[in-house]
Structures are given as C-alpha cells and as structure tokens.
Design a protein around this nucleic acid. Sequence first.
DNA 1: TATATTTGAGTCGTGCACGACTCAAATATA
DNA 2: TATATTTGAGTCGTGCACGACTCAAATATA
Lengths: 147, 147
Amino acid sequence: MKAKEEYQKLENQICFSLYAASRLVTKCYKPLLKDFEITYPQYLVLLVLWEQEAVSLNFIAEKLLLQSNTLTPLVKRMEELELLTRTKSHMDERSIIISLAEKGRAIKDAAIDLPFELVSGFNFSMEEITMLKTLLDKLVNNLNDDQ
Amino acid sequence: MKAKEEYQKLENQICFSLYAASRLVTKCYKPLLKDFEITYPQYLVLLVLWEQEAVSLNFIAEKLLLQSNTLTPLVKRMEELELLTRTKSHMDERSIIISLAEKGRAIKDAAIDLPFELVSGFNFSMEEITMLKTLLDKLVNNLNDDQ
DNA sequence: TATATTTGAGTCGTGCACGACTCAAATATA
DNA sequence: TATATTTGAGTCGTGCACGACTCAAATATA
C-alpha cells in the first residue's frame, strides 16, 4: 500500500489513463471517418441505426449513454447531412423516430473494415483486447447502475 | 472468429466501451470536484502542479497529452479562478510558466482522499484496477508513439 | 374523470477538445 | 552571420457533453 500522496500523482491515476486513452482512440478514428465526413459520435449513432433502421431518439440515447441535450443537436446535424431523418411518432407524440437514410446506409458497407483498421493500431494481442473490453464493460455497468 | 458484420455492432466495439467508461468516470468526478469548484481537466492541471509548482505550459501539455489550443484557454480560466498564475519565461520568451497559486495549493490537502472515493465507486478488486490501468497505459503508449 | 406526476425532447449556457492556422522567438543550416 | 526551419503559445471555428431548466404529452393516482 502506497502513501496517500502517491495517488495524487498523475502517473498513478487510472482515471487519467482512461481519459487519455479515450481521447487518443477518438483521434485515431478521425482520419478513417474523414472519408465519410462524419465524427466519432455520429459514427456511434450510425452503428445503432445499422442494427435497427428506425428507433426513437430515446433508444439511441440509452444505447450510447447520452442525454437528449447532447443527442438532439447531434442528430439534427446528421439530418442536415442526409444520413438520417427525424419524424414524430404516432404512438407517442412526445417521441421522435430516427430513421436511417440512404447516405447513412451506404456507409455501413464502405466502413466494414473500420473496426479492424482501428483496433490493429492498438498493437494488442487478442487476449489483451478481450481483457480490456471485459474490464471496461464491467466498469460501465458498475458506474451506470449507480445512477 | 466472428463475421465482419459482428464487429459493426455497438456491443462488440471496445472503443465504445472506452468512450462510455471515460465519460461516466468524468461524471463521477463532478460531485466530488464541485466542493472545489473546478472541472476534471482543471483537476488534472492541478495534479501536475502539485508535483512541480512551476512548469511551462508545454510541459503540462505533454503530461496531459493536450494541445496548446485546448490548454491555453483552460489555464486562463484557472488564472481567473486564482488557482495559478501565468508569467513569461526569461529563458525562452516564447514560453509561458504556469505557477501554482495559494488557492490551487489549498486544494491539494483538501482533495487528498478524492482518488479513493472515486475508485471505490468502481467496485473493482485491486487486481482488476491494476490490470485495467496496465492495459490502458499500454494502449496510451502504443497510440501516442504512432504520432 | 380531474389532478398530480412522470417522461421524451428540447433550449440555453459553459467548458472542453481539436484541426487549421498565425506569429514571434529560438535554433539550425548554408 | 544571414536565411531557413522549428518551436511555443496563441486565435478561430466547429462539435460535442452536460447541468439546469422548460414544455407538452402520456401515465398514475386520488
């Protein structure tokens, strides 16, 4: 057990490692996503829509752990880029249905190799990737349940 | 080995786990940092200054892996909060020296338990924390060297 | 069934984060 | 030593990310 002060050093802070890793990974996406002229959060919205072509804004928000005040302007920008469309739900007049548009659908096949190109840059073994993902998912679950 | 399409699913994307975990952790900091009226990036700058009371802006940038266009406005806000001071270096007229001010120094002792409060919320074993930090640091090194 | 509560999407304001770029000072090179 | 190159900090513009809040529609409760 180290002294308390040791944990106030940047190099001993797991949270900084997480923060730095996340930003570096997002930066790695930039050149790969540039071909499609989308940002990383926009790519995440497309990932959701590639699994289900039409879902509520609230559904995307829950999947991505984002709030409406982040997601609303994000999907509005994506609507302007003609990647998706926004329509009111008839079932629930409060709800907005986000539907994949042709341009958004076209990216799915074009970006099929993107996950591999990205992760290959990690220079990680299969075991390391699996271990890291398992730990991160556990952390996300633990932190998300608290709220 | 799964089919290529499987890796386009959100739940199979390690990068999303990383992005979500990072945002959730930053959110956990918010109530703890509120006592000191600072943000998480501001806390990181203080961590650097608590190790060395006066360093160049460039030094902080390298430690935090941030660029000057992010760090300059960040430290200017911290200067207004009287957490630190900004002075020109005499050795190198291009360089700005960031020095810890009294208010910033006072937070060091007051926030001594913060790393423990934060990490205890992870609900992780010592082994899991060590493993996760090791993997994240390796990832940061691998991605940072490429640039 | 009238009223209270909850819920989904949204606005507003602030603080990062970063690409592209500028500018002056320092350093390297012809 | 004059010129070219590099470097440190900065401006500008855009896109998140989120706390605090609003508002209307849906749902729960008296």
